[in-house]
């Protein structure tokens, strides 16, 4: 028996090699499943296909920043650190104020700042929708700052209305 299914005896071959049709079996169902899988992969890409999604541009053009001389327009820490880790800084600030009562922070340049989201951060960045929300919405991040803190824009609107 050299080949599978060639049964030979002294009378010669009495069975031929099994002929298995070379084709795709049950292809109707499996290929349909494959197409569905590929569509599911592509589906999230479809809305933006062919478009170029612009990167967010947090706006630094606020009265408080513009008032500062060019050289002093710096955040409490370096740009790279703030971009990646500002949430960590804010969290540390919260812990320092709430647990230790420490309201003083020494920034990257040795300058001292009052630890306060509303009075320090939002003093300069008074435009939440054009600054904070730009990247937060872009990266689909929902920080819970605004559960307790007032956003400066609203405050100013409220003041304006009171006047």
């Amino acid at each position: 028996m050299s080949k599978n299914g060639d049964y030979k005896n002294e009378f010669g071959y009495f069975a031929e090699r099994p002929q298995v049709a070379s084709k795709l079996y049950d292809s109707k169902y499996v290929l349909a499943g494959l197409v569905i899988f590929l569509l599911v992969i592509i589906l999230p890409l479809v809305p933006n296909l062919g478009k170029s999604v612009p990167a967010p541009k947090p706006d630094l053009n606020t009265p408080a920043i513009m008032k500062l001389p060019e050289k002093e327009r710096k955040c409490v820490m370096e740009l790279e650190y703030m971009r990646a880790s500002h949430m960590q800084l804010l969290n540390d600030w919260r812990d320092q104020v709430v647990r230790d009562g420490n309201r003083e922070f020494t920034g990257a340049g040795g300058k001292k700042y009052l630890i306060s989201l509303q009075n320090t951060c939002l003093e300069c960045h008074s435009n939440k929708t054009k600054f904070c929300d730009q990247c937060h919405n872009y990266a689909a991040v929902v920080p819970n700052c605004w559960g307790c803190h007032l956003d400066r824009e609203k405050k100013q609107v409220a003041r304006a209305e009171a006047k």
Partner: peptide, 27 residues
């Protein structure tokens, strides 16, 4: 070890929209 997540999304969405670009400043 935090990275700039906005830059990460710029990189990934560049790939997803078939307009790839190298975004500087990612860890």
């Amino acid at each position: 070890i935090k990275v700039d997540i906005t830059a990460v999304k710029e990189l990934v969405i560049g790939l997803a929209t078939f307009k790839p670009k190298v975004v500087p400043g990612i860890g």
